[in-house]
Computed example of a mutant assay.
Amino acid sequence: MEKYLLFNEVIDWQHPTILEQALKIASEHQTPQAIAKACFAWVRDEIYHSGDYQMNPVTCCASDVLKYRTGFCYAKSHLLAALLRANSIPVGFCYQRLSIDGKGVPYSLHGFNAVYLPEIGWYRVDARGNREGINAQFTPPQEQLAYTTQVPGEAEFQNIFSEPLAVVVQALQSHRTLDELRSNLPDISPESLYRVAFKRSR
């Protein structure tokens, strides 16, 4: 589980503001599952999805997501991972490939998390932020994610990565505004994703 607890420039959980917020959330709870649920709910509800709320800047590293209180799904998953790792709870990154308009091409990745709960194992959660038609919850052992794959070309990746995909980080770091990123959302084919997963597992 060590790799699911690591610090890096994107999941910068040792940043003072991350540690402060992680401790504040955890202080009212006793078990890893309760802490994980509280962190999930806080990121889902208190950090605004940039697309839903038309907010800039584009954020990537966890401390910036916390600072600006906004981020796309990927960035929110980075913050949730940082808060959980700061509380010594293993957490990884998961992705779906979804149709942007719900009809087919073009596609983009959607990012969320998997948290390791001692009595359950890996449990996927989506702190993207709820709105009409989206109702993601923390109800283990049942998963309740924001989206399900429905049309050809969409994909449900089962991999749990210990760090965000490079294509996601590059997209977030190379675009400064909401409109720029919306025109260049990260995508990867199932075949390419499997090659990445195979390479990381070696």
Rank of each mutant, 00 (worst) to 15 (best):
P106M: 13
Y107H: 06
S108A: 15
S108H: 13
S108Q: 14
H110P: 11
H110F: 05
H110I: 08
G111P: 06
G111N: 14
F112L: 08
F112H: 10
N113K: 07
N113F: 04
A114Q: 02
V115K: 06
V115T: 02
Y116L: 07
P118L: 01
P118W: 01
E119F: 05
I120S: 06
G121N: 12
W122A: 02
W122V: 03
Y123H: 15
R124P: 11
A127Q: 06
A127D: 05
R128G: 08
R131K: 15
E132F: 07
E132P: 07
E132N: 13
G133V: 11
G133S: 12
I134E: 10
N135Y: 13
P140W: 11
E143L: 08
E143I: 01
Q144C: 14
Q144E: 14
L145T: 10
A146F: 09
A146D: 10
A146P: 11
Y147T: 07
T148L: 14
T149K: 10
T149R: 09
Q150T: 14
Q150V: 12
Q150A: 15
P152F: 02
P152T: 03
G153Y: 14
G153N: 13
E154M: 11
E154W: 13
E154V: 09
A155D: 13
A155C: 15
E156H: 14
E156W: 12
F157K: 01
Q158K: 14
Q158F: 03
N159W: 04
S162D: 15
S162M: 06
P164C: 01
P164Y: 00
P164D: 00
P164H: 00
L165V: 01
A166W: 07
V167W: 03
V168F: 00
L172W: 05
L172H: 10
Q173S: 05
Q173C: 05
S174F: 01
H175V: 04
R176N: 13
R176C: 04
R176W: 04
L178T: 06
L178N: 14
D179N: 13
E180V: 04
E180N: 07
L181T: 04
